[in-house]
Design a protein around this nucleic acid. Structure first.
Length: 560
RNA sequence: UGGGGGAUCGUCUAGCGGCAGGACUACGGACUCUGACUCCGUCAACCAAGGUUCGAAUCCUUGUCCCCCAGCCA
């Protein structure tokens, strides 16, 4: 468990405090994070992970990692591996407490037989479609299946034969005998077991019947002595069944209680696993780790830090009301974290060449640049300055508006840590595009200071043309332009809804110190944003992902 | 239309009968060798109507709106 400050209060924490104070479960707290290994973890899972592991940490309890692997047709080891990696990356450790629902198949099967013997479960031989019809509707009660009153012996025999593979998929199910007229639809004789002649990623072909979520989850919690089983709001109706199942057995090792909280919704972000799977399968993104994906592995590759995501989860809180968190908060958390830890380097994304007319040709000065002006411990490196360099195209304007601090004809600006330069000429092509800017430098301003005390308002970032290295830079924009992409009508394809400009690949000019850089390392390109070295990156062809841009009050002003 | 939940600044979230607070956003300003960061400030909310009470976001009543449930998914 990571050691950190205690989290902010929330209603679940309040409940647990009261339970501990009342001596429930001998004051012990046990939680669990129970993903189904049918996809990669996303930021919504991070909320649950931080909640469950955070509670265990703060109450000196345990948090189990349990794979809810009861549906072999959807699950895969690739997912369990990625889930473990992502939870660890986020900064949590389940220690020895790793479990699989599939490890309980034997025990669950025994309990199912006990239910049958107690007359609380029966084998139904209706088709799926018939079961649906018999279930009734929201306003009308259902009716009993004609198979509901089979004898215990017959049920036992049928269930045994289901297990032995004598029947085809869909021909029989085991159902709890509860109440077909219950107002809560979940209680209308829920299915406990179904036949699925499919290979399971852990149990192989040992089983051809698999327990359903409602039967498995509560009992798994009980087996593991979970005290507080925390899930999302859509399982509220299932709580009655959760308790019903546990109440059928008096000899369980634990008696967990289920609590629900509102799942995370993030603006401009799809967080439904079904849709994320679709994006991957339809190859609309490069995969689960595509930096545009809201998966933890996507964010990681994009350049988000575990620290920033934990901070985000802490700040959004935990409540029972539906929510839509502004993506700006996530970005704020990232900037705040990276501001302290990302070394500052120089890069030009949209270069225009500048020539210093009065600077000797062939001369090169290596200037000492601190990696972080506010943190000397981060050290420095040498950056070359020469007669020709690149600046950002947006840092020059031939006819600037008032309050424009950057370069324009006749105007003097500072090249960061280098010299003051004044624009003396502009060369344009036939279309009027600026191709070359000529400046004159003041040799007495070396290092970026003027001895006579004259001040310049603008400071530009620059990269020596002769030393610049070319790097691929991937700029990301939101994958969906709609604030709530979950509202997308069914039938409408993702292609229609996706932002065609969600990925822009450009070639940028970088200072030579960036030639060899570690994959996954974070950098601030001064005045541009925070970038992370992509795993695709090589010294021959560096690749950077822009995690998030810097706030830009000038751009904001100009856009008005 | 049955049942289960929910409603506090634009957004997220505190509050649990006693001054509606914080964060994000937005907007101003100071500072600045990043128009960044930082700092300071401003705008901004109790779903509605009744009731109880000296006092209500909080308790009661009645409405309104939103979410979830009719998988052999989880």
């Amino acid at each position: 468990m990571t050691t950190e400050n205690t989290s902010a209060p929330n209603f679940i924490r309040t409940i647990i405090e009261a339970d501990v104070a009342a001596g429930k479960n001998d004051g012990r707290v046990g939680t669990r994070f129970p993903p189904e290994p049918n996809g990669y973890l996303h930021i919504g899972h991070a909320k649950s992970i931080c909640l469950n592991f955070g509670l265990a940490r703060d109450f000196k309890g345990t948090c189990n990692l349990r794979f809810d692997d009861t549906n072999p047709t959807k699950e895969d080891v690739e997912y369990v591996d990625s889930i473990k990696e992502d939870v660890r990356w986020l900064g949590f450790d389940w220690g020895e407490n790793q479990f699989y629902a599939s490890n309980y198949f034997e025990r669950l099967h025994e309990l199912a037989i006990r239910l049958i013997k107690d007359g609380k479960a029966y084998v139904d031989s209706l088709s799926a479609e018939e079961i649906r019809q018999y279930r009734g509707t929201l306003t009308e009660p259902g009716k009993n299946s004609p198979y509901r009153d089979r004898s215990v012996e017959e049920n036992l025999d049928l269930f045994e034969r289901m297990k032995n593979g004598e029947f085809e998929d869909g021909t029989h199910v085991l159902r709890a005998k509860i109440d077909m007229a219950a107002n809560n639809m979940v209680m209308r004789d829920p299915t406990l077991y179904r036949i699925r002649k499919a290979h399971h990623h852990r149990t192989g072909d040992t089983w051809c019947i698999y327990p359903m979520y409602d039967f498995t989850h509560c009992l798994s919690d009980a087996f593991e002595c979970i005290t507080h089983s925390i899930c999302t709001l859509e399982f509220e109706n299932n709580r009655e069944l959760y308790d019903w199942v546990l109440d059928q057995f008096s000899d369980l090792p634990g008696r967990p209680r289920q609590y629900e909280f509102a799942r995370l919704n993030l603006s401009y972000t799809v967080l439904s696993k079904r849709k994320l799977i679709q994006l991957v399968e339809e190859k609309l993104v490069s995969g689960w780790t595509d930096p545009r994906m809201p998966t933890l592995s996507g964010y990681r590759r994009r350049g988000y830090t575990a620290e920033s995501i934990r901070d985000f989860c802490e700040r959004i809180g935990v409540a029972r009301a539906d929510n839509m968190v502004d993506i700006a908060l996530l970005e704020h958390c990232l900037r705040e974290d990276l501001n302290d830890r990302a070394p500052r380097v120089m890069a030009v994304q949209d270069p225009v060449k500048v020539i210093v007319d009065n600077y000797p040709e062939g001369e090169v000065e290596w200037i000492d640049f601190p990696y972080h002006p506010e943190n000397e411990a981060m050290g420095s490196r040498q950056v070359p300055f020469s007669r020709e360099f690149y600046i950002e195209r947006a840092d020059f304007m031939e006819n600037p508006p008032k309050k424009y601090f950057r370069l324009s004809p006749g105007k003097e600006v500072r090249l960061r840590y280098a010299y003051y330069v004044t624009c003396v000429d502009v060369i344009k092509d036939a279309d009027g595009n600026v191709t070359e800017i000529h400046v004159e430098y003041d040799p007495k301003t070396k290092g970026g200071w003027s001895e006579d005390g004259r001040k310049v308002k603008g400071t530009l970032h620059w990269v020596s043309a002769q030393h610049a290295i070319d790097a691929e830079v991937r700029l990301y924009d939101r994958l969906f332009t709609q604030e709530n992409p979950n509202d997308m009508e069914e039938g409408k394809t993702f292609k229609d809804a996706m932002n065609p400009d969600s990925l822009t690949v450009i070639t940028a000019k970088l200072e030579p110190s960036l030639k060899t850089v570690e994959a996954g390392s974070h950098w601030q390109f001064e005045r541009l944003g925070y970038y992370c070295v992509d795993p695709d990156s090589t010294p021959e062809k560096p690749v950077f992902n822009r995690a998030v841009g810097l706030r830009d009050s000038w751009a904001k002003k100009v856009n008005k």
